[in-house]
């Protein structure tokens, strides 16, 4: 089993977290929505696997390239 880190591609605020630890996700599933410059954007899983860890919560401001979740595959 390997771990894949999901990074937020730009500075932004997490609006909604759609996953829980232990959930199975498919590639391109929307795992979170975030906002940057007043634009709401979906963040997709980059790989099929199981959510191992969630490092952020809704309302939190996150830096570019910060890890927001870890997926085990």
């Amino acid at each position: 089993m390997a771990l894949e880190q999901v990074l937020l591609p730009m500075v932004g605020k997490i609006l909604k977290v759609n996953i829980n630890v232990g959930d199975s996700v498919n590639e391109d599933d929307t795992i979170m929505t975030f906002e940057s410059m007043k634009l709401e954007m979906p963040l997709m899983a980059n790989i099929k696997g199981v959510v191992k860890e969630i490092k952020v919560q809704a309302g939190q401001t996150v830096e570019a390239d910060q890890v927001v979740a870890v997926i085990e595959y």
Binding site: P9, M10, D28, M37, K38, L39, M41, P42, M44, A64
Partner: peptide, 26 residues
């Protein structure tokens, strides 16, 4: 600003869901 950059981000994500062009378009 920043409307055109936002439009580019939206169109970019339509073509490729994992493409984040917002900052590049800024």
């Amino acid at each position: 600003v920043p409307m055109s950059a936002r439009v580019v981000q939206i169109e970019g994500q339509k073509a490729n869901p994992r493409n984040f062009l917002l900052m590049h378009a800024m």
